[in-house]
Design a protein around this nucleic acid. Structure first.
Length: 425
DNA sequence: TCTGGGGTCCTAGGACCC
DNA sequence: TCTGGGGTCCTAGGACCC
């Protein structure tokens, strides 16, 4: 008989803030937030900021007063840095477990089935990542992914010891019940604000309540996802570890503008540059797209005439050519653009993706031309990878780019650019 | 002046077909 | 008084995650 499954979830504490602190020790012990693109919302908070009561996702411009009061340091997000730090963490984890699933930029599931001494192993993971990369992590173990997530929550909040590691598989039912009865049902992976509210009205308030709830009744009201969550809480593993990431089914690139855009030309620049970025991602995962969606919208938070429109443009045949994607996107934009609105955001989505390896030849295509275009796109990707984004780009994507987002307090790309390497002074 | 970006999965409902 | 029924496909929208 095979041993019962055990998952570990490793999660970096306050990931973006912790990355910034690795390179600037003055941030240690201070209240620090990292802001989303355009310096819009709070997307990462240090413990000091959490203690003040600032919520995840809070609009920064509404927090200026309280921030000044508490001396909060606000940094623009530096995804180049975070992406590189993430890669380092995942590389270390790859050597500490037989199989792993990189779940997000700062989280990773590990297969710990059949591995003993889990608490010691968890401590070893923490020590190694702290020493080699400088980042603090917590480790949770559970019989299912949902329980491993919950264990990680316990580790972070020190609900079952102070060690930064929590192994729920070691607890007896008598020890687990009071623990789960102390955790809010909204902490469960898959229970968001809406579900939480509805569960409350059914007197399901804690994880323990949900675990012993009537599966049939909750399934018929909320669907199969809820059933799976309850079964996972009971130790019945429904979500397997996905060691190889399946290819994306849609690829999106979109941004809010740093300042509102009125002119068609500028809107066109923006969607062409997103088309270009989406094309890069598409080629990276070796897929082709058969239809593209373009959208534009005004600022819904402002009391001005609103306009939001999207359009799907089918492509004559599946392609990964930035120039063809750009042409379709431009045509789509012409169809939906209306004069006289102040646009705040635009975007491009590539849909109906298929593997490039399964591409069907069409009757009248010019194989030589397609091959030449393939080589052009590959050359562009290589040049941009080597010399930096937009070294070569579509001419229509603009030079001035007055619409690009703001990032007024971005730290250097410490680990990925020699000219921004941190020097000891 | 100022409110992110990028995904997934599921369900309901309409169109259409036989 | 009475106006089929079931399957499939597609789309829109909602909920969730980080």
């Amino acid at each position: 008989m095979s041993p019962p499954t055990v998952f570990a979830l490793v999660d970096v504490n306050n990931f973006y803030v912790s990355c910034e602190r690795v390179f600037d020790s003055r941030l240690l012990g201070k209240p620090v937030v990292v802001l989303s693109n355009n310096d819009g919302c709070v997307v990462a908070r240090s413990n000091e900021v959490k203690a003040i009561g600032i919520k995840m996702g809070a609009p920064w411009h509404l927090l200026k007063r309280v921030a000044a009061e508490h001396g909060i340091v606000a940094l623009s997000s530096n995804y180049t840095l975070y992406g590189d730090m993430s890669r380092r963490v995942m590389n270390i984890l790859g050597n500490m477990a037989p199989r792993l699933e990189v779940y997000s930029i700062d989280e990773c599931f590990l297969d710990f089935t059949g591995i003993r001494d889990r608490t010691e192993q968890g401590q070893a993971i923490r020590a190694r990542i702290q020493r080699w990369v400088g980042l603090p992590v917590c480790v949770g173990f559970g019989a299912t992914k949902t329980l491993a997530k919950l264990a990680n929550h316990c580790a972070k909040k020190s609900l079952a010891g102070e060690s930064g590691v929590c192994d729920l598989t070691r607890l007896t039912p008598y020890e687990i019940q009071p623990l789960l009865a102390r955790i809010d049902v909204g902490e469960v992976w898959g229970v968001g604000p809406k579900l939480c509210e509805q569960l409350q009205t059914m007197q399901i308030r804690t994880v323990a309540d949900l675990q012993r709830a009537d599966v049939g009744a909750l399934r018929s009201r909320f669907g199969v996802v809820m059933e799976r969550t309850i079964r996972e809480l009971r130790g019945d593993s429904c979500l397997p570890l996905e060691a190889v990431a399946p290819p994306k089914q849609q690829i999106m690139s979109s941004r809010s503008f740093g300042k509102e855009v009125v002119a068609f030309e500028e809107l066109r620049e923006s969607v062409l540059s997103y088309a270009s970025r989406a094309g890069e991602k598409l080629r990276q995962q070796a897929s082709l797209t058969s239809s593209v969606m373009v959208f534009v919208r005004t600022n819904p938070f402002k009391d001005v005439p609103q306009y939001a429109k999207q359009i799907v443009v089918p492509l004559p045949h599946p392609t990964d050519d930035t120039l063809l994607i750009g042409r379709a996107v431009a045509a789509g934009l012409r169809a939906i653009y209306r004069q006289g609105f102040r646009y705040k955001k635009s975007g491009v989505m590539l849909m109906q993706l298929t593997p490039k390896a399964e591409r069907q030849a069409t009757l009248f295509e010019d194989v030589g031309a397609i091959d030449r275009r393939d080589r052009l796109n590959q050359a562009m990707d290589r040049i941009n990878a080597k010399f930096g984004k937009r070294t070569v780009a579509l001419a229509g994507a603009g030079i001035d780019r007055r619409w690009v987002m703001r990032a007024e307090n971005r730290t250097p790309a410490y680990t990925t650019r020699w000219d921004e390497f941190p020097l000891v002074r």
